[in-house]
Amino acid sequence: MKPRSLWVFHLNTGACNGCDIEILDVLTPYHDIERLGVKLVPTPRHAHALLVTGPLTRQAYYSARKAYSAMPSKPRIVIAIGTCACSGGIFYNSYAIRRESDRLSLEYPRKGGTSEFLPVDIYVPGCPPRPEEILYGIALLRGLVKKKMGGEHYTVKELVLPRSQFNAWVELLLRAKIRREIGYFDGYALLKDFMELVEKSNSPEELGKMVELMKKRIKDSRLRYGLEMLYKHYIGVVRMYESILAEKKVVLGVSK
């Protein structure tokens, strides 16, 4: 039977506070989880469900177990909030973490966290999860929404290589450069547009004209700056390539 109004107790097993504050946040006006009948209670004795956060430290383990056994025997729902509670998170194999499973193995799904000592009903990953993510988890438990995740196992034979030879090489070099100029997030998207120009153009001069045209279209000053830098580095790579080729010819000439 799906639960209706959940009374929850918040159990922190050594979390960094991020998830705990987001749990508090879903109680405030923007998200107001009480719409779903959820109420935060001050003791596990009144709780239907535990909202567990944290990677389960060794010191917290004993009290956490006690809190679980203090709950009424039914329904005793356990909701793991956050990546740490789902699988130990970034702390998964530290000496201070309570873990029964092997600490160095390459198993999957990755082990650790709440499921090391309690049967978990719903996992809500995120570091920290957005308030909406927590709402979604509770709604899933109540049967209000459908599950969206499903595991994937790909064994695709086909391989797509969007660019080849010189352009592929340039793209790799420019990736490292643009990361320093405007960052990976905006930079990689910009690089993609730039590489399309490179593919279209026949010479660096023609590319220069196309870049100028594109700069006129872009309103954002930082993107214009990034484009300028991309073109500068591109010319640098072309010059380097040419000099390598020239040197190589000389060397070959001598050996002949």
Partner: peptide, 16 residues
């Protein structure tokens, strides 16, 4: 962002 599930296997993506 909606990754909540009751089965941890749902979280795993494998490329072989």
């Amino acid at each position: 962002f909606e990754a909540a599930t009751d089965d941890r296997n749902d979280h795993v993506e494998v490329v072989e």
